[in-house]
Design a protein around this nucleic acid. Structure first.
Lengths: 367, 367
DNA sequence: ATGAAAGCGCTAACAC
DNA sequence: GTGTTAGCGCTTTCAT
């Protein structure tokens, strides 16, 4: 007994194959009683339409593409982020009967659009999901949703783009507000000199985080000092470099807020090398709740984004859009939460000499 | 101008569509001159066969499935491993004109085989790649390669299975030998009490690592002490728990070798809490060179497996097998390398009182 | 070594 | 509402 096809179902239900097709694709204009009869036959024969056949015959492929920047680049180390996005997208795909095509690529490659068009061409994707920093490539997105040359337009949905301009549907978290919250958390612990480590400017969401830091300072009534802000590139190494410049400077900060966990880990490593005790002598905060946030010492205070939920949500939006049902809200926001662990604590009581400076004089282990 | 199909190519080359098909699929019995003429037409028209059409018409799907244990489980935290495997498999797929279907699943789920068969049924995969711990599920693999009920057999290839029995092709690294090497590294630093933290027994490769530890002790002429071996479950938390039992015991070790980086990170966190200075008072080693190995302090001495290369290799083997070319060697071994960083160092000179014991008496920060 | 015809399983367009 | 016909782009089988 071979696998059932549409003809077997049609025969068993006593209808034409076209009617089976209508039922399977949820098309209107089928009498309810007929629909039920067909569905019974589908269930009885355990019928599942052949994806290749429907791709070949129809205009739709039931395929969604997930694009992300190559996760094995040195400044792109948080593979748990990608994996969580995959998990969320897969879950939504499964629910809606879609299959997934993953496509790691290089967002800085000049042939990026061409390589995506080749993929579109080859796999005939029905829709595309862009994760950061690809979700910020406005010209790319415009090219895709407009359709170029002999290619038809593709529906696109974005995860965490930095701008809310209306190129395509998007799911967000409030990077800015949450960073203000984190800054306030540090201020409430008594910190007055709170430093910030910025991320790579290509990641527009990270710019939002910097804005949130400034909001937080303002809300806490704390002055902004430009020398307390350093620019990293998201990598651990850049976190280390920024930390050294901050901690070995003239008046080191009592708290450092790095805009991702990787750089925060770099800060912590440097603090250890300088012999600083955390959080007594220095508070450190990150953002992302990356896999290693709990695995470093002291466990990192950070922000957890509901990445899987965001991915599932954006996939649902994309599928709705593909089905001609524009989402009620093209900008879905999902809240993040502050996770306070061990790396942040009360500011040290003021003493004559800064403990950092004292310690620094006696320490030579830093390279 | 629409996309070229096989008829356009046939017309331009002045041959039948069947001949184009022969050329595109590298079938024999085509005169060289004809083949060249067809290839020229293919190139001129930028022809790429429609995957859905060839799946529908032929027996092959040009699709490979990659199975792995759900990466969001608490004791399965190393998503960089999965992502690297994906990258390697994707590269090989691209080279050979295959597409990839990723399938995270639960290796302990009783419906695992059924869910894989559903996938096989739906996507008509030509072959399957199993990553650990799925690569150790011998009954599952036997069921797949034998083919059950109305399903035909599927070629399977395994990444890092614990046993080299001949269920299916496999790619390995020398877990045992490399762990012996690491143990010797510690012994050569002067350590005599070297503890080992075992992993979850479902991961058979981790059992090999334990055997390597014992080999290493033997090679170094060091006695084996059962109380220096603790059983973890691969998670950071279990690493912490084992570390506490080891370090708070009667005669604590001078070095701890955890069989993965996650548990090693747990050991390091506990050491920090106990106020131990690493590596002066305790050496810690891990295995995997996970993403965070460089991001913790002190940077972790560990073992780097060439995960991407292994994934690429195993995919090549699988494709060869699918094409009826059994690999020359069904068990490919790829070497791993010891990465010595900062977490291991010379054993402390013997003193009357163990520094650990001294420090422990004055430390109350451990919870 | 090459080609003609049939058909994979489905949907599109149109008829009824 | 439902069925008929044609065809998506390829591979198969079998002829020559």
């Amino acid at each position: 007994m071979r696998k059932a096809n549409i003809h077997h179902v049609a025969a068993r239900a006593g209808v034409s194959t076209k009617t089976v097709s209508r039922v399977v694709n949820n098309e209107p204009f089928v009498r309810d009683s007929t629909r039920e009869r067909v569905l019974r036959a589908v269930k009885a024969l355990n019928y599942r339409p052949n994806p290749s056949a429907r791709r070949l015959a129809g205009q739709r492929s039931f395929l969604i593409g997930l694009l992300y920047d190559n996760p094995d680049k040195f400044d792109n180390p948080d593979s748990s982020y990608i994996v969580n996005i995959q998990q969320g997208v897969l879950r939504a795909c499964e629910q809606h009967g879609y299959d997934l095509v993953i496509h790691p690529c290089d967002y800085r490659d000049s042939t990026l659009l061409a390589s995506i068009e080749a993929l579109l061409d080859h796999s005939r994707l029905d829709g595309l999901i862009l994760s950061p920093p690809l979700s910020d490539l406005d010209e790319l997105i415009t090219a895709l949703v407009d359709g170029g040359r002999q290619r038809r337009a593709v529906p696109v949905a974005r995860i965490s783009p930095g701008s809310k301009r209306s190129f395509a549907d998007a799911v967000f978290t409030d990077d800015r507000g949450t960073c203000a919250e984190m800054t306030l958390h540090l201020a409430n612990l008594g910190h007055e000199r709170i430093a910030f480590i910025q991320g790579h400017p290509d990641h527009k969401a990270l710019v939002k985080r910097y804005e949130g830091y400034r909001d937080g300072l303002r809300a806490a009534g704390l002055p902004f000092h430009a020398d307390l802000v350093k620019l990293g590139d998201n990598s651990f190494q850049s976190g280390e470099a920024c930390a050294r410049r901050l901690l070995l400077g003239d008046s080191p900060p009592g708290a450092i807020f790095a805009c991702n966990d990787e750089m925060a880990a770099g800060v912590i490593a440097v603090a250890h090398r300088l012999g600083l005790h955390l959080p007594d002598e220095l508070s450190v905060a990150g953002f992302d709740d990356a896999a290693h946030a709990k695995a470093i010492y002291p466990a990192l205070t950070t922000v957890r984004q509901p990445v899987q939920a965001m991915a599932e949500c954006v996939t649902g939006m994309l599928i709705d859009r593909m089905h001609g049902r524009p989402p009620v809200n093209a900008r879905q926001e999902i809240p993040s939460t502050l996770i306070v662990r061990e790396s942040t604590g009360p500011a040290p009581r003021r003493t004559d000499a800064s403990p950092v400076a004292v310690r620094r004089a006696t320490t030579a282990t830093d390279r």
